[in-house]
């Protein structure tokens, strides 16, 4: 379904766009591209905004839920993932998207990110990776490159950057992709697949901070980017996927597209309570009929 045929659609772009705050990002910020690609993907998938929860942490990028017409949680710095899986386990019928920054997801929130990935909750986690702490005005982040000068690394960054894609693979994510904010078309396609994927989808979004990161700019990426699908990458092969995640480090080439995708049962499908009783929120807060039975061992 093409996103331009708005007329026939039950949910159109305006459902995701109107009645929400206007983005407050700096002009030219990469996050605009992420937002519009995400909205397009949601329209393409004909997802109901009222059945969707977008959860973020804190940072420039984490203002995201305020700009998208679904329910939202703008939680604490680094806490998008644990909030999102709380939402999903409480009401597994919702479409849950977690969104945030690289500091949010790979710094303060790294634990939550990796554990959400390994548990394979059916959520989509998108990190607007600008390799800098934007909101706090330009300190080094876990993905800042070696040598980069920032407010917290005035003599150049001496810490090896984390490889978010390899980390997600190692943690057990079942969908791992990278998208570039400067390529809206490919981005929307990747987002569509990520949201449609049943299980934990991770999208590392190259989303330049035009104000505080003068190294990893739109041009920086345009010079280095290539598409995995143009090079016959097999996304079912995890070792090949790992190899591709190191292209940037090793070969100064930055691949975008789907690195890895497999199918594995989701957490919600396996949880004992959900299997037996279904959706907790839809079931309601009720006095259990078997309340006495569950305490029979106490006599």
């Amino acid at each position: 379904m093409s996103v331009t045929q708005k007329v026939d659609l039950k949910f159109s772009l305006s459902d995701w766009k109107d009645n929400v705050a206007k983005p407050t990002w700096c002009p030219g910020c990469g996050d605009y591209g992420v937002l519009s690609a995400t909205r397009k993907a949601l329209v393409s998938l004909q997802i109901n905004p009222e059945d969707t929860m977008v959860v973020s942490g804190i940072g420039c990028s984490s203002n995201f839920p305020h700009f998208i017409g679904s329910y939202g949680i703008h939680s604490l710095h680094g806490r998008a993932a644990p909030n999102a899986i709380g939402v999903k386990l409480a009401n597994p019928d919702l479409t849950v998207i977690a969104a945030g920054g690289d500091g949010d997801g790979f710094g303060i929130g790294l634990g939550g990110f990796l554990h959400a990935a390994r548990r394979n909750f059916d959520i989509t986690y998108i990190v607007m990776d600008n390799q800098i702490y934007g909101l706090t005005t330009g300190q080094a982040s876990p993905t800042s490159l070696i040598g980069q000068k920032t407010k917290s690394t005035p003599y150049g960054n001496i810490e090896h950057p984390i490889n978010p894609l390899a980390s997600a693979l190692a943690a057990g994510a079942t969908f791992v992709a990278r998208a570039f904010s400067g390529d809206g078309k490919e981005f929307a396609e990747i987002m569509e697949k990520a949201i449609a994927h049943k299980g934990f989808s991770f999208v590392d979004a190259l989303s330049p901070c035009v104000t505080f990161n003068k190294l990893n700019t739109f041009d920086y990426f345009r010079e280095r980017i290539y598409k995995l699908e143009d090079e016959d990458h097999d996304p079912s092969n995890i070792m090949k996927a790992y190899e591709r995640t190191y292209d940037w480090d090793h070969n100064d080439r930055v691949p975008t597209g789907i690195f890895y995708e497999i199918s594995r049962p989701t957490y919600e499908e396996m949880d004992v309570t959900l299997k037996e009783f279904g959706n907790p929120v839809k079931r309601g807060a009720i006095r259990p009929k078997n309340i006495k039975d569950i305490a029979s061992h106490l006599y």
Binding site: I73, A81, P82, N83, I85, G86, V87, A90, V281
Partner: peptide
């Protein structure tokens, strides 16, 4: 940290948590 945030997420979603 994530226990507490997880529970707030579930509460916002409508569960007694």
């Amino acid at each position: 940290i994530n226990v507490s945030n997880n529970v707030v997420g579930a509460a916002v979603a409508g569960a007694r948590a």
